[in-house]
């Protein structure tokens, strides 16, 4: 039950994108099509999961025993950057069209603060190993959810008669704000 609550909390109530406002760059950048939003969500979830595992190990096996917790930022960024490289190579090998669709946003996962945020939250909240894995899965699911919802709305918006001055970035920001407001409704549930 605790694990379910943790997952639910990370995915919906404390959604990384819509209530912590982490990872806004791909949220706006890769949310034009549902299909690419799903694959971006998958890529981020994968990186989150692996980096949660690796950063937990590094923090508890290396940094804490040697009393060098001060290095958590450096080592976490190192882990995330290497993982993103790996994912990039993998996606390029497996699916070139997907690689082209994700474009610059794929290497930008490196600097996606949602992932560093996840690793730091796990340390801050003193999650056990399994907890941090579930937390990562929940956060990834939440990120994917936010991206897919946004992409769905934007696919409809492309055909909607948006007033001229709101077209493009303007209406996207308004939609993102409205979406974040809607997610605020979950606040305090857990």
């Amino acid at each position: 039950m605790t694990y379910f609550l943790l997952f639910f909390s990370a995915a919906i109530v404390n959604n990384f994108v819509l209530s912590y406002f982490l990872g806004i760059c791909p949220f706006v950048g890769v949310s034009k099509k549902i299909s690419s939003a799903v694959s971006m969500g998958m890529a981020v979830t994968f990186v989150m999961l692996i980096s949660a595992v690796v950063t937990w190990l590094i923090y508890h096996m290396i940094l804490v025993p040697f009393h060098v917790e001060i290095l958590e930022y450096v080592s976490f960024i190192l882990v995330i950057a290497s993982l993103v490289q790996l994912v990039e190579m993998f996606i390029r090998k497996v699916s070139k069209p997907l690689y082209d669709t994700l474009g610059i946003y794929l290497p930008l996962i490196t600097t996606n603060c949602a992932i560093l945020g996840l690793a730091l939250f796990s340390v801050l909240r003193e999650y056990a190993f399994l907890e941090s894995v579930v937390f990562a899965l929940g956060a990834g699911a939440g990120f994917t959810l936010a991206l897919v919802i946004m992409a769905g709305i934007r696919e409809e918006l492309a055909l909607a008669p948006v007033p001229r001055h709101f077209q493009g970035a303007g209406i996207t920001m308004i939609v993102a704000g409205a979406l974040a407001l809607a997610f605020m409704g979950f606040a305090g549930m857990i």
Partner: peptide, 27 residues
């Protein structure tokens, strides 16, 4: 010294991993 060693070690480890992956996943 511990900081340098641990970070250097981690860096080397990931670098090796990436080199291997690059060989394996070369397009």
């Amino acid at each position: 010294a511990v900081s340098m060693l641990s970070m250097g070690g981690l860096g080397a480890l990931f670098a090796t991993g990436l080199v291997l992956a690059n060989k394996k996943l070369y397009v």
